[in-house]
Amino acid sequence: MLPPMSDKPFDPHPTHRNFYGRRHGKTLRPSQKDYLAEDLGPLRPRGITPADNPDRTPIDPAEMFGRACPVWLEIGFGGGEHMVHMAATYPEIGIVGCEPFINGVAMLVGKIKAAGVSNVSVHPGDARDMMDVLPDGAIARAFLNYPDPWPKTRHHRRRFVTPEHLLPLHRVMAAGAEFRVATDIPSYVRQTLEEVPKAGFVLDSLRAEAWPDWPSTRYEQKALREGRCPTYLSFRRV
């Protein structure tokens, strides 16, 4: 059974937010340090963090890519293989990824350089900062791939599929936009099916097979090796 959610009203612009995930892992290789020092800067969108934009003034998504285009959002891109694959497969879109784990950011930047894709933007921080400043209806598709499972019941409130995250996501997504969730954790599937529709989404599909344009990621491969069955869910913003 899921823990009850708080009755406290949702605050769209809190003065303080808890952050529970990791920001640093193993020592970065020299090449990864170079990626962060030399290549990350041009990929970072402006006006995202409270320090850079204390008034939380909405940004123009076109400025992230230098052109007007459909914008996709990846929440927690891990090692970046899915994000780079989508950027290469759909060059007509712009995709922005948010990831506070700096080792994953370094991996992504290396993959961006290797693939030569240019329709990408990288926020090395909390996705909530990005959602604070995106205009209403700015996102045409969003991805939540193998998010941190927080397996203990008392930690389920820390998962992304809670009102603190889903209500801002609903605001920034366009009507009819697709929200994809991939996970190998049964309780995460249950919580997703319970909470995402409450936030203004309708379930499109629930499947054991990945989407046709899905690239197998290291997290999926680990789940399969360890005998866990992935689930792929698609929702539409209403």
Rank of each mutant, 00 (worst) to 15 (best):
P3T: 04
S6R: 11
D7I: 04
K8T: 12
D11P: 00
R23N: 10
R23I: 09
R23K: 13
K26M: 09
T27C: 06
L28A: 14
S31L: 15
S31D: 15
Q32F: 06
L36M: 10
A37P: 00
D39M: 02
R46W: 00
T49Q: 08
D52G: 13
D52S: 15
D52V: 00
P54H: 01
D55N: 13
R56V: 07
P58S: 03
P58G: 02
I59G: 02
I59C: 14
E63C: 12
E63Q: 13
A68P: 07
P70Y: 03
V71T: 14
L73M: 09
G76A: 02
F77G: 12
G79V: 03
V84H: 01
Y90G: 00
P91F: 10
E92I: 03
G94R: 04
I95A: 02
I95Y: 08
E99S: 02
E99I: 02
F101T: 01
I102D: 00
N103K: 09
G104Q: 00
M107K: 15
L108T: 13
V109S: 04
A114C: 10
A114F: 01
A115P: 11
A115C: 12
N119H: 13
V120N: 13
V120I: 15
V122F: 03
G125T: 04
D126G: 07
M130L: 15
M130E: 05
M131L: 09
L134V: 02
G137H: 00
A138S: 13
A142R: 07
F143L: 08
F143H: 07
F143R: 01
D148S: 11
H155R: 06
H155V: 09
H156C: 06
H156M: 04
H156P: 11
R157I: 01
R157F: 05
V161W: 03
T162L: 05
P163C: 11
P163A: 07
L167A: 05
L167Y: 11
L169R: 05
H170C: 11
M173Q: 10
A175Q: 09
D184W: 02
D184V: 05
S187M: 06
Q191Y: 03
T192C: 15
V196S: 13
P197Q: 14
P197A: 15
F201W: 11
F201N: 08
D204F: 01
L206Y: 06
L206N: 12
R218L: 06
R218T: 08
Q221T: 14
Q221G: 15
K222I: 00
G227D: 03
R228C: 02
R228P: 01
C229D: 12
Y232I: 08
L233K: 05
S234P: 02
R236C: 12
V238T: 14
